[in-house]
């Protein structure tokens, strides 16, 4: 990663080098944003916002080798900000056909979405990285810059929260 950044910085300028590094992870970043927001337009907008923030804060990244975990963290923060904003703003949204491929959403899926939306962001991010991106606890710890033990705790609490929500639904 570092060597790539150096070479590209020399060749095409810092902005282009930065851009290439972001673009190299675009699918991963978009996937994470989509898992939070479940809307293409919102996920793309958050990706833009995250790219902007990352560019602005690039000097704070001391170790270029940690660029990807750092960027993922920014994307997650942007997603959380967007979710907070949504809670503040009551919007009336028309039903959006997703690329004309409307999908019947099952009750189970809606329950899962509600459970995730109602979860603390720190638990949710661990679940997303583990079950959506198939990351190990160690990798998640690196991304979130937290000890492995903390990640394990958040993971367990996230699953517990989910269990509680889904159980309540089942009982109801």
């Amino acid at each position: 990663m570092e060597s790539i950044m150096k070479v590209q910085t020399a060749n095409t300028g810092e902005e282009e080098a930065f851009m290439q590094m972001v673009l190299g992870q675009q699918r991963l970043l978009y996937g994470i944003a989509y898992s939070y927001l479940r809307s293409e337009a919102d996920a793309l907008e958050v990706l833009q916002e995250a790219t902007c923030r990352a560019w602005t804060k690039r000097r704070s990244l001391k170790d270029p080798a940690r660029f990807t975990p750092w960027l993922i963290r920014i994307v997650i923060n942007c997603c959380n900000d967007e979710l907070k904003r949504r809670k503040r703003v009551l919007t009336v949204k028309p039903a959006e056909p997703d690329n004309n491929m409307m999908e019947m959403r099952s009750d189970l899926r809606l329950d899962m979405e509600q459970a995730l939306d109602g979860m603390k962001p720190k638990y949710r991010q661990v679940l997303v990285l583990k079950y959506y991106r198939d990351m190990t606890v160690a990798e998640i710890a690196e991304i979130l810059d937290r000890p492995v033990g903390t990640v394990k705790t958040w993971l367990n609490k996230g699953l517990k929260h989910l269990r509680g929500k889904m159980k309540i639904k089942e009982e109801a």
Binding site: E15, M19, V22, L23, Q26, R27, Y30, L44, E45, L47, Q48, E49, T51, C52, W55
Partner: peptide, 9 residues
Amino acid sequence: IHANVRLAL
């Protein structure tokens, strides 16, 4: 995605 990332800066 590429276009939107490029658009960001």
